[in-house]
Amino acid sequence: MNIPADLKFTTNDEWVRVEGTTGTIGISDFAQDQLSDIVFVEIVVAEGETHAKGDSCATLESVKAAADVYLPVGGKVLAVNDALPDKPELVNSDPYGEAWMVKIEITDPSELGGLLDAAGYQKHVEEKE
């Protein structure tokens, strides 16, 4: 199970990479493995919109399951990954890289405090399994 040390995670299996005030968001390796082959990705937020922490930002479907992706932190949407809906399999093959979903201008950095670090997420995943 790949859990990069530089990311923060939610208990709902989203990750966020923080660079300055920008947060890049996707779902974890564990989550893609649980969902199995992703066949559909829909990003449900648009550039320029402002959303709160916990708002839905994407929907994923595999053959057997569906999942909503929620924002780990609130803010203004800087970019969405337009390439992803055409290549949903990227979520399986490169969940922390090419399969990023949304970039956000973080409004309130203190929201990051409630997230798990890599070790904490590792523990969370082990409990779930």
Partner: peptide, 10 residues
């Protein structure tokens, strides 16, 4: 036999 359900959905 078993079907390719991923292909069907994609």
């Amino acid at each position: 036999g078993r079907l390719d359900e991923v292909k069907a959905a994609k």
